[in-house]
Amino acid sequence: MHMAFDEQKMDQLLERYFQGETSLEEESWIRQQCQRPDLPDQYLPYRSWFTVIEEEANRSLDDSFETELLDRIHRQQRQARVRRLISKPWQVAAAVVLALGLATWMWTSDGASQWTSTSDQIDWSQYEPDSPEEAAQIYRKAMLRVSTGMNTGAAKAANKLEKLEEIGAFFK
């Protein structure tokens, strides 16, 4: 004979259950209450919920499931090992080639900026003087400009040196 249905306890436990605060014993009590034939109507929607959970919890797998699962895992491991054995040297080779290529590029070709800049993009021939005589005049003027700059720099450096010597002499 069943005890009287304790609605107050059921309400409290259901509220706590859906807040995830019930213990295993309390959940078991709710399940048992839901299976009672005299379950009040307002709790009927909970019956199916707790019955399904009960069934799932009691469900067991036969040995064939475990055997098949282990077999599948072993198959996957075998395939993965074969793939790695084939691809690893190529991965290493590709990485080394990329690293060496990048390093060479940076060291030998004066950086990335020159990769995209070649004279092919500017038609320099259109800026050439009309004659060697004109070219000679331009060349001489260009060298004169460089030379003047160098001489000015050298003179300034000599002047600075002279001043430094004067200062040095003053402190002697």
Partner: peptide, 16 residues
């Protein structure tokens, strides 16, 4: 103002 003197033109300067 842009000017370009090519290597060939420089070779010709030697004859001037």
């Amino acid at each position: 103002t842009v000017v370009y003197i090519s290597g060939k033109l420089f070779q010709m300067l030697g004859k001037l």
